[in-house]
Each structure stands twice: as structure tokens, then as C-alpha cells.
Computed example of a mutant assay.
Amino acid sequence: MTRGTDDLTVGRVAALVGISVRTLHHWDVIGLVVPSERTPAGYRLYAADDVARIHRVLVYKELGLPLAEIARLLDDPAVDPRRHLQRQRSELVGRISRLEDMVAAVDRMLEATTSGLRLTPAEQVEIFGTDWQPEWTADAEERWGDTEAWAQYSARTAALTPADWRVAAATTEELNAALATAKRAGVDPGSTEANALAERHRALYSQYFDCGHARHVCLARRFLEDADFATYYESLEPGLTPWLYDTVAANASLHGVDPATASWD
């Protein structure tokens, strides 16, 4: 063949399209992109149409198609390349949308795992009362930050506003007052009234992380063992801390959980 004035050597084509000479050699061997001409010494020369075919191959490769399928698409006269590309474009748009949703979900998770209780110390005291210690949040994260429950808590509270926390604090205060009133009135753990209160208490924590009956027992046990929790409940009603544990334990037993062996996981 007669060499065209615009024909390119394999090295120039490789540099032009951003692939290796070795790749072009391989495509030549398998018949995917065969250069139109060669020099008298046998060196490959690529015409403009050859370079255009290379670009089409690269597009199909980006779509994830295998080389054999690409060759069929390029060489089969029955294949409408425009319709095929339109279909691939539609699939790519859908894939981009799904990826954007995934990125948004990851961003929300990242924000949640680094935010926790998104209130200033002053807001925490204003909402939860003067007995609240803002460092408790940091202490809790240090103790449970690598647990599934903390991840759930962070994710579920990430979007809460100060107004939301005020509602949550009021709900907690109302429930604790009901617990203290029941203890003062001599309501027996295991009674219908006590079990209803136990379920309200468990539902309160279930807003923030999965709190089954076994975990609920573990929480009540924690209230007994932790001086800060015990002091708080005892300030509401003397003897409330052990009464709450007995109430939670009795309710858990009703649901098939042995309080003596209840574990978090």
C-alpha cells in the first residue's frame, strides 16, 4: 500500500490515545484494530479511520464490554452502533444515579459517625437539665464508639435539631416521673402496670439503637452498677434503681429472656 501523509506510527498513536504500544500490538494480533498500512520495513501505520476505531474500542471498554464483544459490535453490519450506544448511555445514567445515591448515603454515615449529639454544651445543659454533664457524651463515645449500637445511635440522631432533643428530653422526663410514681405507689415488678412501663422504657431506647429485651436487661443492670445512673434514679425516688431493674427483668422473663444470663449480643 501507499503510505498516507497523515498515517501515524504505533508509538505516536499510543501517545495520542493514551494506551501502550503493547496494547496496540495485541489488538492487531487478535484482529480488533488492524493498522491499514505498514512501512516497507514492516512497521505499523495507522490511518485516521484506524484511530477512530481505537477511540470506539476505548469507549466500549469503559462500558465494561469484553474485547470479543467489542469486535462483534464493530464488525457486524447488522448491529446498529448508535442504538447500542444509546442503550449503554441509558444504563450508564442509571448507574450514575445509583452511585450518587450511594455517595449520599456514605456521606450521611460519615456525618453521623462523627457527629453524635450535635448540641453545644450549653444547649445540652439547657435541654437536659443542670444535672447533665456535657462530657458524658464524649465518655460514652470513648466507651462504646466502636460498637454497632453506637453507630445506630449516631445515625439515628444525626439529623435531630435542638427542638427534637427538647421533645426527647420531655418524653424521657415524663417516663421517669411515671416510673417514680409507680415505685412510690408500690407497683409490683411483673405486674401488668409495671410491664407496660418497662415496655415504654425499652421503646424509649429503641429509638436510638436496637434494644431487645436482653439488651434492656443489660441497660437496667448498668443503671445499678454505674454511680451516675444510680444517683440520678435515686434522686427521683429512693429505691427506684433496683425497682427499675426488677421491673425490666420481670418483663424480659415474660418475653423468654433469662435476666441472669442476658447479654448485649
Rank of each mutant, 00 (worst) to 15 (best):
Arg12Phe: 03
Arg12Thr: 15
Val13Trp: 04
Val13Ser: 02
Val13Met: 03
Ala14His: 06
Ala14Val: 07
Leu16Arg: 12
Leu16Thr: 09
Leu16Gln: 13
Gly18Cys: 09
Ile19Cys: 05
Ile19Met: 02
Ser20Asn: 07
Val21Trp: 04
Val21Met: 14
Val21Glu: 08
Arg22Val: 05
Thr23Tyr: 02
Leu24Gly: 07
His25Gln: 15
His26Gln: 09
Trp27Leu: 08
Asp28Ile: 10
Val29Lys: 08
Ile30Met: 10
Ile30Cys: 10
Gly31His: 10
Gly31Gln: 11
Leu32His: 06
Leu32Asp: 04
Leu32Ile: 06
Val33Glu: 00
Val34Gly: 05
Val34Ile: 14
Val34His: 12
Pro35Gly: 06
Pro35Trp: 05
Ser36Lys: 03
Ser36Ala: 14
Arg38Gln: 13
Arg38Trp: 06
Pro40Leu: 09
Pro40Ala: 15
Pro40Tyr: 00
Ala41Tyr: 00
Ala41Glu: 08
Tyr43Gly: 01
Arg44Ala: 13
Leu45Lys: 02
Tyr46Gln: 03
Tyr46Glu: 03
Ala47Glu: 05
Ala47Val: 04
Ala48Asp: 13
Ala48Phe: 00
Ala48Trp: 02
Asp49Cys: 00
Asp49Ser: 11
Asp50Val: 04
Asp50Ser: 04
Val51Met: 11
Ala52Asp: 15
Ile54Asn: 01
His55Trp: 11
His55Gln: 12
His55Val: 14
Val57Glu: 00
Val57Lys: 01
Leu58Met: 15
Leu58Gly: 02
Leu58Phe: 04
Val59Ser: 12
Lys61Asn: 07
Lys61Pro: 09
Lys61His: 14
Lys61Ser: 14
Glu62Leu: 09
Leu65Lys: 10
Pro66Ala: 05
Pro66Asn: 05
Leu67Asn: 10
